[in-house]
Design a protein around this nucleic acid. Structure first.
Lengths: 174, 174
DNA sequence: ACTTCCAGGTTGAAGCGTCAACCATTCGCT
DNA sequence: AGCGAATGGTTGACGCTTCAACCTGGAAGT
């Protein structure tokens, strides 16, 4: 068993270990903040945020699942809980009666608006405000390169904008 | 409710969305590869790897939990499964009879040695080989900055070296 | 129209992580 | 010594994600 493995150099190793730690801790930290402040998981929030940006605050389950990087069964379970909490409703698509349309309720909308600021604050506290503007650009380029392997079909590229709710409220000409 | 929230700029937003996508996809990708090639979760591998580097291939459960960023109950469950599969054994510490020592078996050692190359290969394919040497250094600095907030006590800093098993055998001069 | 196949969703069971409760051992104080 | 508190670990129940099975509705071929 001759060892042809290309091991990592010391520099590569250190960078990798740190990235691995970030990838491990960051999702947990976001989950924790949202759980505490909004009684929701990160994924729950993502679902509501996605709907809040969609035309008529409505999306098909399959599209919603793809854009949140979830399997359909997972989304189905999550949507059932969010529906039970009054944040969204599910209706049959009369155009294609196989499909289900998820629509954000007014209460769901208020939930997103109420939750977004603290979420953005956490993102700033944990990441953005700790980096220089140059590092933000470097991070963007690095993450893009890595996503080329992780997400070749770019399903997550139009990920939740963490957008200012005040302007998503009425006008989304795009 | 005047909105004092400091929203993200377009550049910050894009970088953040991409980092979020990486943090979401990378752990799943590593899990998937290890599950497929070694019938283990990423965390399982981490536990075995940690033990493989320790003196006498032995660590206390509490120390092992801390260095793998896990709660003690989680590690206890995982160790029970790994013990059932013959990869490690648990014995009482006769020095402090409250403590439990986890020791990697020969079979566990062989498992790590057999698994490491494909794992490192995946790390290269997904991350390291997609970045320039400059980007590797930038990534290191960025991740370090973020870890300042995520892991202030540096519990994960001595994370698994993904080290060449052939030299973990005897010498690690640093 | 009728059959066949595929896409869209939902459901229920199984596996893993988290939390709270619990037991054993050691440490600190008197 | 002896008591109370704290440390180290394990266990069992609950919640969430995954996987396979299933059902419905549309599309394609004849």
């Amino acid at each position: 068993m001759t060892d042809e493995t290309r091991w990592l150099s010391a520099r590569e190793l250190q960078a990798w270990m740190r990235l691995e730690a970030v990838a491990e801790l960051l999702p947990a930290a976001l989950d924790h903040q949202l759980q505490r402040d909004a009684d929701m998981s990160h994924y729950d929030y993502l679902v509501l945020a996605k709907l809040s940006e969609a035309p008529d605050r409505t999306l098909r389950m399959s599209g919603l699942a793809a854009s949140t990087n979830a399997t359909l069964p997972r989304l189905s379970h999550v949507a059932a809980r969010l529906e039970a909490r009054g944040f969204l409703t599910r209706t049959r698509d009369e155009g294609d009666r196989r499909a289900t349309l998820a629509t954000l309720t007014d209460e769901g909308w208020r939930k997103v608006v109420a939750t977004a600021p603290s979420h953005v604050g956490e993102v700033r506290r944990l990441v953005v405000d700790r980096l220089t503007p140059e590092q933000v650009e470097q991070l963007d380029a690095i993450a893009l390169a890595v996503l080329g392997a992780l997400d070749p079909e770019n399903r997550l590229q139009a990920q939740n904008p963490v957008v200012d709710p005040s302007d998503a409220c009425g006008n989304e000409a795009g």
